[in-house]
Design a protein around this nucleic acid. Sequence first.
DNA 1: TGCTGGTGTCATACA
DNA 2: CCTGTATGACACCAG
Length: 647
Amino acid sequence: MQIAKKYFSEGLIQLTILLSLIGVRVDIDSYLSGYYTPLIEINLGPSSAYTQTPFHNLRDTLDGHSVHPKCPELDDFFASRRLLDEVRTLGSRRFPTQLNAWLVHQVSATDKADCGPSTSNNTSTDSGLESPGDEARDDSEHLPDSGQDVCQTTPELGQRPCSTGACGFLKEEDDVKVKEEEEPAALTQLAHSSTLEQESLLEGITALSDPARHQPPTIDIDQHWSNLLSLSVTDLDDLDSLVTERLSDLDTDIPSAISQDVSLHDAMVTRAFGVASERAESRPVTQQQRTLFRLESTGSSHSDPSPGMAVGLAALPFASVCNLTGNVSSHSALGGCLDEAVFDQINQLGLEGLDTQLMGSLESMNPQVLEDLDSDSGLSLESSSGGPVSPGSSEMSSSSSSYCEDDCGATGYSSEVDSVPSKGIMDYDTTWSPIDLSESVWHDHSYSSPAFFNQPSVTLPHKGIKEEPLSDDEGSRFEDRDLSRDELRARAMCIPFSVLQIVNMPVEEFLEVLDGHGFSPDQVTLLRDIRRRGKNKLAAQNCRKRKLDAITGLQEEVERLQAQRGRLLKEKQLTAKTMGAVGQQIKQLTRDVLARLRDSSGRPLNPERFTLQCGANGRVVVQPVRRPAVATSTGNKTDKRKKDKKQ
DNA sequence: TGCTGGTGTCATACA
DNA sequence: CCTGTATGACACCAG
């Protein structure tokens, strides 16, 4: 996580620097600070990664700003993610729109950096976690304090690259100043150091500044907006072309943290077209799915191309999804620092859009079981529960849909995404047969948690563990396929529910299913086992995550305590040294004093036999050295021991 | 071939 | 008593 964070921050900083050179200001510090927050929380303790958060609820909100009460910290998290999306969009075809947004931010930030403390306050609050290293990397853009004057310019100055860079610096400078107010001792040093570096780096730019122009902010915000609108529309095309040229160079430099989405997108699109062409006649909604996945791929790339989350996207419990996202395992690990929650959300979106397709596959696969299904109603996967044994397919469908709506994201742990190996996806991709649509159906039978979403095929049957007997026909059909054992069992027992449903439906509903569907005792037992195993699987994953977190936390504590020990040892040595010096001084002073004193017979006091004692009242008294006392005490002890022995 | 990490599962305790 | 959760232990698999 730390490495990923480092890569990610460096990539963003590089992008920021380059964008600053061409006049686009990127508020990277506010992003980074807000972005790091959930990461730190993940490292330090319970977080969204372990909270059963219904991230699917976020899909109806704007960038997830309305989050589950369990995860209030995700507010900032999604806000930062939105900023990241905007930054990344600079390299995509949506660039002009996003650039316009950045121009808005540029001017407003410039004004506020000059004029208002509000931005500074906000930024300082957001950048509370900003590392000094990040600040140091941005030093190349920094201007000295006088650089504020450069920013006290008219909008035409704001178009200059140097001025924008100066504004970026100024914002950070304001941050430092605010921090100084809050923590003067600790941060003043930092601010001074960075200021010195900035002065040394940008002496030439400082010549442009005029201290006399340092004036309080007086420009109206509306005026700035009008200026902004007047310049952004006209200069947007130029900036667009210019930035596009620069970004073409950036593609090779910026780490894959930002550009990995390209590979993901390409891979997905390629596969989407290839697979879609093969299934065109059997899946009328393929085009829709493809569109959906292209959108999702874009969204995922905006979030982060972490391997785990790429798998999370790719591992939707549908065969088509798995095939569309086959080559995601090559993604860089640096993206692992981003939110798995985003992919949970994406998974939810994908689940919605794929239900229709899945139902088509279900019908073609198992008509004897699904003959009563209402296939043209866009039923979700769970509508398969409304099979021949279902008393009411429509009712069951609605209720089952509620599983997905309420439980898919609510159950499980988003942090599991990063632990899901991509091999499952690759294996599935290589073994998938576009002709056998039933496989696409049964690959959907995975748990609703992200872990299960991501493992439509990775839950390989454990050969060593006891297997419930399967018929030869069933075994031959599925033994080499990547279905979980429970999925195989469920199908062997003709249970019209997916493991996902069984695990995630509420217990009341589960009991209704057990009672109202006329299941045999074996089926009931299997249903209960599947549910228990699914629940326990999630619990085990959660438990392991917690264990890893605990280990990480303990390791960090060990490091902290070791550092503290080192400090204390140094302090101890220093104290001992000081005490020794003071002792020597006292001895010397005692000798001097005693040498000037005389006893009753007029002879000087022997420093070996007398000492000076300072009383509590400040009086200094000459006392004889109590050497015999030590010997006496020792003798007393010896005597006591002898007495004890005698007794 | 042994090691290691990840994962699923079972047994058990607890709420 | 039932259900869900947490966790240790075990086995399997893949790298």
